[in-house]
């Protein structure tokens, strides 16, 4: 078959498929689909309402944490404390949410405010966010360990009920992840202030010249991150039914990996909320995939990293073509 035989609209469509920008945008979804198909092939039990529900349950708190990280990455910062913060939220909620809900909400609001304060500190003193948030991670963990030296505490029934809710047709984790992606998307990509927020990461000087307060922008991004961190902690203890100071240590790196896997960049305000949630879900499914593969424990840890590297390598390839 030669080119002349192909009708031109079809050729246009094929050309579009080879467009690197589209490829780059589609990569997160394609990776997710690939891993889902692989899982379904290995374990047909996974291809059911219950299977998806079980596999994706723990994706919900990771999705929240990933969105939190994404807000920070939008302004070219990196948050190394989100995991410890989620752990602290879990401990606070596990200590007070049942007995003194009002006090608990106030304390959690205070946590969000202190996140904003960290943002302000970073902005005003021009400190590297990595250093400040790394320091804060020890502060959050320290408070959490003081609050809960041994794991324990109680989680309200409504929270447990919500997280194990089984809506008809579509499993709850999928509904929740879609909702998270949608809210973050509207907030950051569709609203006019969202464009300003992203602009602060892309070209701070321009935003500054246009009369926007960069301090306020950074503070609101950190506050948003804190808010989503709180949601992450609450949804997490709804699943585990009991908090623990170390419950979410892993979330710091998972959230960064989720954003990057979802098409985000470390600099330039280039992020995608929908991609980030897809990234978080993909990371969760990678764990399932490796378990279903029955890879020996010695290799499981490395294999998880390998999946990440493959996806990122693919993206680097696409980027190379984009640059040409």
């Amino acid at each position: 078959m030669t080119d002349s035989v192909l009708s031109s609209p079809l050729r246009d469509r094929i050309d579009m498929l080879r467009d690197p920008r589209l490829l780059r945008r589609a990569l997160p979804a394609v990776s997710l689909a690939a891993i889902l198909i692989a899982i379904f092939l290995i374990n047909d039990r996974a291809m059911s309402y219950r299977g998806l529900d079980l596999m994706l349950k723990y994706a919900v708190p990771i999705a929240f944490a990933t969105i939190a990280q994404m807000f920070i990455l939008t302004v070219n910062d990196l948050d190394l404390s989100i995991g410890a913060f989620v752990g602290l939220v879990a401990c606070i909620a596990g200590t007070w949410l049942v007995d003194q809900p009002v006090l608990c909400v106030l304390i959690l609001a205070g946590c969000v405010a202190s996140y904003a304060a960290v943002g302000a500190l970073i902005h005003v003193r021009r400190l590297p966010s990595i250093v400040v948030t790394l320091g804060m991670s020890f502060v959050w963990l320290g408070i959490a360990v003081i609050l809960m030296p041994t794991p324990g505490g109680t989680v309200p029934e409504w929270l447990k009920g919500l997280m194990s809710w089984k809506p008809p047709l579509i499993p709850f984790p999928i509904v929740a992840c879609a909702a998270i992606a949608l809210v973050a998307h509207v907030l950051l990509m569709e609203s006019s202030y969202g464009a300003v927020l992203r602009g602060a990461g892309g070209n701070a000087t321009a935003i500054d010249r246009a009369g926007w307060s960069l301090l306020r922008i950074r503070m609101s991004m950190y506050a948003l991150a804190g808010f989503f961190g709180v949601l992450s902690g609450l949804s997490l203890i709804g699943l585990t039914t009991s908090p623990d100071a170390h419950i979410a240590d892993r979330y710091t790196l998972l959230s960064i990996a989720g954003v990057i896997l979802g098409g985000g960049e470390f600099v330039g305000g280039r992020v995608s909320p929908i991609g980030a949630v897809i990234g978080a879900v993909t990371l969760t499914l990678t764990g399932s995939f490796l378990i279903f593969m029955r890879i020996s424990p010695d290799w499981q840890i490395g294999a998880q990293g390998a999946v990440l590297i493959v996806v990122l390598a693919l993206r680097a390839l696409i980027k190379l073509r984009e640059g040409r």
Partner: peptide, 13 residues
């Protein structure tokens, strides 16, 4: 904890 909880869910499946 989170990873092990997810692991147990997968073992159930």
């Amino acid at each position: 904890v989170t990873e092990q909880a997810a692991q147990i869910q997968n073992l159930i499946l």
